[in-house]
């Protein structure tokens, strides 16, 4: 009886410790990752593959490509996937909580501090400078995305159409996104009907290059 109880306690403790490890692995990464979700990828890989050795590099690449196709931020998806593979649904929740909690607290404190400091001329000027830097970071993300997605006339036209719809027609982005989900099928089908060959990926690229872009180019 006593032995059985001890085994149950041991299993329980092992499960808790696995969840705690997942939580803290991501808890550590999040506050150090400035520059959005893509900037987190190299840090996550180092923590999970090199330091903790939970998965091999190949398994990691597979998981990252899956993280890229699911909706949501890539970093959040990657955390959920790693957590799920390691410890099921509770693992996924633990990993996401670890990733989100520190940034959540940081965002709230910064927002709180900003509320009191917003009328300081120096703070205002610094935020304007940061505003410009954030534009640069968004442009950088656009460049990275363009490098893997725009490689022939059709893709260039689709990109221009999306930009046009947003800039001039002020369409709900949701329509643009839904349109985007069918346009690829239409183009590929259309090209096949007139007998053109279609390459749906940029030559020499793979899912891995999409998810491990040269972030620092």
């Amino acid at each position: 009886m006593n032995g059985k109880g001890a085994v149950i306690v041991k299993i329980f403790l092992a499960a808790i410790s696995r969840l705690a490890q997942l939580f803290f692995a991501f808890f550590k990464i999040a506050p150090a990752s400035f520059g959005g979700g893509y900037a987190m990828m190299p840090l996550i890989e180092r923590e999970i593959v090199v330091k903790r050795q939970w998965f091999t590099e190949v398994e990691m690449a597979d998981m990252l490509s899956m993280a890229g196709i699911a909706p949501g931020g890539v970093a959040v998806n990657a955390a959920a996937l790693i957590g799920y593979r390691k410890a099921g649904i509770t693992g996924a929740v633990a990993a996401i909580a670890g990733l989100t909690l520190p940034t959540f607290l940081i965002v709230i404190s910064i927002s709180y501090a900003y509320f009191y400091l917003r009328n300081e001329p120096k703070v205002e000027a610094a935020l304007r400078g940061i505003h410009a830097a954030v534009i640069a970071m968004i442009l950088m993300a656009a460049y990275r995305m363009a490098k893997i997605s725009v490689f022939d006339i059709s893709t260039a036209c689709v990109m221009a159409a999306a930009l046009f719809a947003m800039l001039l027609l002020h369409k709900n982005p949701l329509f643009v996104i839904l349109f985007g989900l069918v346009i690829g099928l239409v183009i590929v089908r259309g090209k096949e009907l007139v007998g053109l060959s279609v390459n749906t990926e940029k030559a020499g690229s793979s899912a891995k290059t999409m998810l491990e872009p040269e972030y620092y180019i």
Partner: peptide, 21 residues
């Protein structure tokens, strides 16, 4: 095929985000 058409849309949206912001 879906992603062939979808990725350029995302690129367009990101460029728009930068310009607009």
């Amino acid at each position: 095929s879906v992603f062939y058409g979808f990725r350029p849309i995302i690129t367009g949206l990101i460029i728009y985000a930068a310009l607009n912001f």
